[in-house]
Structures are given as structure tokens and as C-alpha cells.
Nucleic acid binder design. Structure first.
Lengths: 104, 104
DNA sequence: ATATTATTTAAGTAATCACTTAAATAATAG
DNA sequence: CTATTATTTAAGTGATTACTTAAATAATAT
């Protein structure tokens, strides 16, 4: 039983991001996900475990199939962190904008 | 000479994120950054190198001081990736909302 | 029951990572 | 010129990572 995985770490791996991307169109059993990769079943299974520990996917079991679906709410943490830098590339404002431009 | 570092990887490390956060208030020489951590100078220097390879910081040299400043534009890649999931946590819409609720 | 299918868990490994101390580089100060 | 200060680069190490193959679990099909 592994402990809660850090969300930034979970998303740092390209294969794991691709897994999430695949799940954006809807839930899929593990086996269907594997087909998209040049990895073995256990390899994917371990990535899915990391995503699950980070809370980024949820599972539903139906018979021998384990359906995975994306749960993107933890991504909000990353989003919020990045938003602090958003003004830099958006407004291209300098120091003055830091206290003023709070409204959307 | 290390090759271009992946942006998601660069940002996955807490110390590196903290470095960027420290630089949000303005450029700082490496030595001043080190003070905020329980790490050695070379440790920080290596983290800064990763950030630089990822394009997240720029440097300016003045005498023996190396000033680092944040360059957040590469974060846009992460931001854009995450935005694809934004609707999930924002609208808390179910299946029906996927085609309809595009407007803010 | 037995075999098959879907998946996870276990165990092993090579590569990468985040640190350290020691040495190198480079600018300034005496 | 020498010593000091600021920083990087080199070299080494233990921990973590991303994979693999083999074994275990669990449901379905025969």
C-alpha cells in the first residue's frame, strides 16, 4: 500500500499524462489503455496506481474489468500555483500590476 | 552541457517550485536564494540549472554575482494542458454539459 | 472443476535523481 | 600578486523511478 502521491510528480511523467488524456473521452478498462502504449500491462498498471494515489483517477469494477475514469480536481492545485505566474505571460505587466489587477 | 529539461519535470520538485516562488518578487543572486533552504550551495546551483534548462529562469551576471530571474512563459504549456481538464472541476457538469456549456 | 481472460502484486534491475563534499572558475578586495 | 567571495562543475552515493518478467488474484466461460 503506497502512500499518497504528490500531484506534481504524478503528472510529471509523459505516459501518465497520456493516460489521463486517453481517459478524457470517457472511462476505459486497463486493457484498452495498454493498447495505446509500447509498455507491458504491469507497466501501465503501475502508472495507473500512481495516478490513483494522487487522486487523479477513480476506478469501477465490473466483472473482471477495472474501469478507470479521470478525476481532474486535484489538478486545481497545479492550476492555482501556475495562475500566480499567469500575469507574466498574459498581461506582460510589470511591477505595478501586482496590487491592482485582481479582478477577472 | 545538459540538454533541454522537460518543463513538467522541472516543476515537479518542491525545492525548484520554491525557487521560482522566491523569484516572483524579483531577481536575486544565487547566494540569497540558498539562504532560504536547508541545502548546500551546489545543491541549489543544480536546481537552478534544471530550471534554466527548462527556460524557467534567466540569468544576468554582475561581477561575481549571478542574478536569477523567473521567466514563466514555459509554464503556459502546463497551463494549457491543464485547461483541457478545467471544465471538470469548474462546472461540475456531467455528461450532458460536455457539448453545451462552453460559455463562462 | 479447469481453463481462459483481465488485472494486480512481487521481485529484480538499470537509469535517473537529489543530494553531498571537493575541486575549479572567476571576479573583487587587500 | 594573494586572499576572499560567489558560484559552478566534478565526482560520488543512496534513494527513487520506470520498466521488466514471473507469480498471484479474481471473475467468466467451458
Amino acid at each position: 500500500m503506497e502512500v499518497k502521491t504528490d500531484i506534481f510528480h504524478a503528472v510529471a511523467d509523459p505516459h501518465r499524462r497520456q493516460l489521463l488524456d486517453l481517459l478524457r473521452t470517457g472511462e476505459k478498462p486497463a486493457g484498452e489503455l495498454v493498447e495505446h502504449f509500447d509498455l507491458t500491462f504491469p507497466g501501465i498498471s503501475q502508472h495507473l496506481k500512481v495516478l490513483k494515489n494522487a487522486g487523479l483517477v477513480k476506478t469501477r469494477r465490473q466483472g473482471r474489468y477495472h474501469y478507470y475514469r479521470v478525476n481532474p480536481s486535484p489538478l486545481r492545485d497545479i492550476h492555482e500555483w501556475i495562475t500566480q505566474y499567469e500575469q507574466f505571460w498574459k498581461g506582460r505587466l510589470k511591477k505595478l500590476g501586482q496590487h491592482l489587477g485582481e479582478a477577472e
